[in-house]
Simulated assay, not measured.
Amino acid sequence: MWGRVRESGARFRNALRTEAKTGRDVRSHNLFEAAAAYVSACTEDDQERIDEAAGWVSPEALSFGVNELACRAVIALARERDESPRTVARALLGLPAA
């Protein structure tokens, strides 16, 4: 529930920011940029950056981007560690080996 409230607030703030930038060239962000910014802000517990990144794309697109980022990160770590993606994912989440 609080996530929806934060997303709504972020969209409102970004709408205001976009109106203020009317005279300037406003660059749009793709879902992968939004996902990378969102996840990195979450790891640093930076609520302002979390809200900003969440407002760049729709919640559905952000969810897809975060999921894609997680998949790619697990695959990269699995290759680096020479383990299966399942083993790496369970280890990252602190779950016992299956």
Rank of each mutant, 00 (worst) to 15 (best):
D45W: 14
D46E: 13
A37I: 02
R72I: 01
V26Q: 10
R24E: 14
N67C: 02
V66I: 04
A61W: 02
D51C: 05
D46T: 02
D46Q: 02
V74R: 03
A35F: 03
Q47K: 11
L69Y: 15
I75N: 09
E52C: 00
A53Q: 09
E44W: 01
R81G: 05
D46A: 00
P59I: 06
R72G: 00
A37V: 02
V66D: 06
A54N: 04
T18H: 13
L69R: 15
S58M: 05
R72Q: 11
E44V: 03
A54D: 00
S63H: 11
A54H: 12
T87Q: 10
V74I: 14
N67F: 00
D25G: 03
F64V: 11
T22K: 13
R17N: 06
A53Y: 11
R27D: 05
R81S: 12
A61P: 00
A37K: 02
A78T: 07
S84Y: 09
L16K: 01
A37P: 04
I75C: 03
R72K: 11
T87Y: 12
F32W: 13
Q47I: 14
E60I: 09
I75T: 06
E19A: 12
S63E: 14
A78W: 11
F32Y: 13
I50Q: 09
R17H: 07
E68A: 05
G65P: 12
G65Q: 10
A54G: 02
R49F: 09
G65K: 14
E19F: 09
A20E: 11
N30L: 00
L31G: 03
Q47Y: 12
V57Q: 00
A78H: 07
N30D: 13
A78K: 12
H29E: 01
A36G: 04
E68M: 05
G55S: 12
T87F: 13
F64M: 13
V74W: 00
D82R: 15
E52W: 15
C71R: 15
S40E: 15
A54S: 08
R86A: 14
T43V: 04
P59F: 05
V74K: 02
T87L: 08
E33D: 12
A70G: 05
T18S: 15
L62A: 04
E44D: 13
E83D: 08
E44A: 06
E19R: 01
A36T: 07
F32I: 03
V39W: 01
P59L: 05
A37L: 09
